[in-house]
């Protein structure tokens, strides 16, 4: 319904001035001119459609995982955490496994900007993350453990299990019932769970939330430049979501 209106929200220099009265209104926020208008980031002339399918999918290959088998374990696990259903796609269709792969290959995978000096002690839960292992190493161990636990419990590879059985395996990890020796299985599961939700709802820029379908399910409008007109609305305002890609490239 309000599509039109919100599609046109991308702010042009002229729109911006007209809308906010910055220039004509006398008081001009220096930050605004220097930032928004000066940087030419938000100017727009056309309203291009989403790029063709094949152009968008070059990022669906592996940066971190080496074997298809490991990636399959990861994929099946994320799908149980956020399954496809009548509301919409699940983790796999949303690209969550690729999101996680890319995160593991990048700064998050090596705990960039986190304190990494030893000595390492176990600590209390409320003292937080204390392992010497980096995120990517925890995922390596976790995937190995998922596979091992499935074999020993069900005599079957994790990716081949029925959904219910996969849930049982994941539940065991969540409840700390799996011995991973150097870390608790719940630490791995918690990271997996968090990363899955990130992949569902982070800007599609990062490889998940394909076509903003995560946002659409939640009726979340993404990157809008102003809600001044709607903020007092008694009714729920529906809008087509907008991502950073569109803001940056239009």
């Amino acid at each position: 319904m309000a599509d039109e209106k919100h599609e046109s929200k991308t702010i042009t220099r002229r729109d911006f001035i007209k809308k906010t009265g910055y220039v004509t209104g006398g008081v001009v926020g220096g930050g605004v001119l220097g930032g928004l208008l000066g940087s030419e980031v938000w100017n727009t002339t056309t309203d291009p459609e989403v790029a063709p399918e094949e152009l968008q999918q070059h990022d669906q290959a592996l940066q971190y995982f080496k074997s298809r088998a490991d990636f399959q374990v990861l994929s099946s696990a994320t799908e149980r955490i956020f399954p496809a259903d009548e509301l919409g796609p699940g983790a796999i269709e949303l690209g969550v496994p690729y999101y996680i792969d890319h995160q593991l290959a990048g700064r998050w995978g090596i705990n960039d900007r986190e304190y990494r000096q030893g000595p390492f002690y176990k600590g209390e839960p409320n003292q937080g993350y204390q392992t010497h292992l980096k995120h990517h190493e925890i995922f390596d161990l976790g995937i190995e453990a998922l596979e091992k636990y499935s074999q020993s419990t069900f005599n079957e590879r994790f990716a081949e299990l029925e959904g219910k059985q996969q849930d049982e395996v994941l539940m065991a990890f969540d409840n700390d019932e799996v011995d991973m020796s150097v870390i608790s299985s719940s630490l791995f599961f918690e990271l997996l769970r968090t990363m899955t939700f990130e992949g569902v709802y982070a800007d599609p820029l990062y490889g998940g939330n394909k076509d903003m379908q995560g946002w659409k399910m939640k009726e979340y409008p993404g990157v809008q430049m102003s809600y001044t007109e709607e903020i007092e609305s008694e009714d729920f305002v529906e809008m087509d979501p907008v991502s950073l890609h569109k803001r940056f490239n239009t």
Binding site: V32, G34, G35, L36, G38, S39, V41, G222, L244
Partner: peptide, 9 residues
């Protein structure tokens, strides 16, 4: 500065 917030959403 303000212009560093272009990708901030």
């Amino acid at each position: 500065e303000t212009q560093d917030f272009a990708m901030k959403h």
